[in-house]
């Protein structure tokens, strides 16, 4: 038997008149844990979004996808603010969107670059065709 009354009452299967004191401790602890895990998940998502934005934030992307990149930056900042006021759900949503926006910015810039290269390739084909003709025709 424990020498401490608090521990004794907590460890007893049933308190006076059926009152279970440990039940009153379980709920606050469970709520706190839930809130902490929500914020922790939002914080982890924010870190992922921040990494995605850092990867996307290159000069080529800044030049070819400024709007998409700006959107990702803004949402990441808002997610940070939401974390600051312990709004885990809002922070989670904004960070998820920011991560995807950063990926879209990167993909958009890559598409623009490849389209440009494709256009250059077509121009080079025409130029080489012209060069071949003029080299053969003009004495």
């Amino acid at each position: 038997m424990s020498r401490f009354p608090l521990l004794r009452s907590l460890s007893s299967r049933r308190g006076p008149r059926g009152w279970r004191p440990w039940l009153w401790l379980v709920w606050p602890v469970a709520f706190s844990l839930g809130a902490c895990s929500g914020l922790g998940a939002a914080q982890a998502q924010w870190s992922r979004a921040e990494a995605a934005l850092r990867q996307a934030d290159q000069p080529a992307v800044q030049a070819d996808a400024p709007i998409e990149l700006g959107l990702a930056r803004e949402k990441l900042q808002r997610a940070h603010q939401a974390l600051g006021v312990q709004d885990a759900a809002m922070a989670q949503r904004l960070a998820e969107q920011a991560e995807l926006d950063a990926q879209v910015a990167e993909a958009h810039a890559q598409r623009v670059r490849l389209r440009r290269e494709e256009k250059d390739a077509r121009a080079l084909t025409l130029s080489l065709q012209g060069a071949g003709r003029s080299a053969g025709d003009q004495p």
Partner: peptide, 25 residues
């Protein structure tokens, strides 16, 4: 999220198309 994921798919497809054209050239 679904709309942006679709945008990603379309960008990837357009990039693949351009890359194929460059490789063919």
């Amino acid at each position: 999220l679904a709309a942006q994921t679709l945008t990603l798919a379309r960008e990837a497809a357009a990039s693949a198309q351009a890359r194929a054209a460059i490789d063919a050239a």
